[in-house]
């Protein structure tokens, strides 16, 4: 699966994207957010405020309780500030 990071989430993790095989117990966006915190110092810092972080599954906004089964691409980012 492809994971993408934007804005301060990208800055804190230190990467903009990665290809990764997720552990089988991760079923929802929320599970994935919690797991991200366990991936070392950078990821712990990036996902510390996980409640404010938004997610998109295959380029569509997704809630934290959304199932990730079948997803090809999941992105994490702060609330948007365009316009």
């Amino acid at each position: 699966m492809r994971l993408l990071y934007f804005a301060w989430v990208r800055e804190k993790t230190g990467i903009s994207s990665e290809e990764i095989d997720l552990p089988a117990h991760i079923e929802t966006v929320g599970d994935l957010l919690r797991w991200q915190k366990t991936r070392g110092e950078e990821f712990a810092a990036a996902f510390e405020k996980d409640r404010v972080i938004r997610a998109a599954i295959d380029q569509t906004h997704a809630r934290h309780d959304a199932a990730i089964a079948g997803a090809r691409e999941i992105a994490f980012f702060p609330p948007v500030t365009g316009g």
């Binding site: 980012f77 948007v80 316009g83």
Partner: peptide
């Protein structure tokens, strides 16, 4: 369009 763009379109300002 502007109201929806502000909350839904994935842009970030630095």
């Amino acid at each position: 369009l502007m109201d929806y763009l502000k909350t839904d379109a994935p842009f970030w300002k630095f």
